[in-house]
Simulated assay, not measured.
Amino acid sequence: MKRIIIFLSLFSLAFAGFDESYYKLPSEERRAVFFAKMNTLLDRSFAKVAKDRAFVKFFLENSAKNGFRESEGLIKLASLREKYRVKNLFSWQEYDEKMRLVPKSLAMAQALIESATATSRFAREANNLFGEWTWGEKGIVPENRAPNSKHKIRIFDSLEESVDSYLLNLNRHFAYENFRKKRYEFAKDGREFSGLEAAKSLHSYSELGGSYIKMVSQVIQKYKLMEYDLKTQSPLIKW
């Protein structure tokens, strides 16, 4: 019976968000559905990063032959440069360092913690799975926000948009430069950049600092999320 419930939940959630039936599931089954959903969402986001990366690599390699005179390609390249906050428009190394994926085990563990397995107020009302802040108008004011703080919890139109934003945040924000450097070094050395290794470089993600890193690592190990890294069928893993 449990397998049937989980299967039906996975089927209904494959291309949608978490509905009320999800929240009625026992915690173990809900967690299984959550990880399956995150796996799907991450694959979609990975595909978008791969598409961006493929365009930049192709354009830089081929357009150099004609002096980068292709206007439409240059416009798109400039757009991606702004998106990923690359300084040098024609520097493949800068794009190469930033246009990469994140270990699934890391993303899943952070999403579970930040959203309380998608049961938190911010996950349900704002589709916010990673606790992202905003200082714009579109946001939810946290109940325990400090008196002098101005941040809000960012509202996303979908869970997929939240995952896209999470990846982009790690790939371009200055606070995660060390994360990107370590990821790049591992890739160049042909070593796997695991979720446990990646977590060590995320001191800036939470005000909890080292305690947060320990928490993320414990979740990865407890639920054996490393297996999702091994099952990822994507050339991005080899970057």
Rank of each mutant, 00 (worst) to 15 (best):
S105T: 10
T134I: 09
S91C: 14
G67S: 05
A64Y: 08
A111Y: 01
A64N: 11
D52M: 07
S105Y: 08
E70R: 05
Q93S: 13
F90C: 08
S71V: 14
L42Y: 05
K83Y: 12
A36L: 00
R121C: 06
L41K: 00
N66C: 04
I75T: 09
A64F: 07
R81C: 14
R44N: 11
E72S: 14
V49C: 06
S63Q: 15
K37C: 01
R121N: 10
T134G: 07
N88R: 13
W133K: 15
K57I: 06
L74K: 15
N66R: 15
L106E: 04
G73S: 02
V56I: 15
A109C: 02
K51P: 01
Y84P: 08
K65G: 04
N39S: 10
A123V: 08
A50E: 15
R53L: 07
S120T: 08
E132I: 12
R53F: 04
S63A: 15
K51R: 08
A50Q: 11
F34A: 05
F55I: 03
S71C: 02
R53I: 03
L42E: 11
S79G: 13
A64I: 14
F130G: 01
N39H: 11
K65P: 03
L60H: 12
L74I: 14
G131V: 04
S91F: 07
D43Q: 05
K87I: 08
A109G: 00
N128Q: 10
S91A: 15
G131K: 11
T134L: 07
F122L: 11
L77S: 04
A109H: 00
E82K: 15
K104Q: 13
S91G: 05
F34V: 02
F130T: 01
E61M: 07
G73R: 03
A123M: 09
K65H: 09
N127M: 10
L89Q: 15
A78E: 13
W135C: 07
F130W: 05
T119H: 09
E70A: 07
K98D: 09
N66K: 14
E72A: 14
G73M: 05
A111C: 05
S105D: 11
L77F: 07
K37M: 04
A126S: 10
A78T: 12
F46T: 00
F90Q: 12
M38R: 00
A107N: 03
F59W: 13
S120F: 10
K83F: 10
A111Q: 02
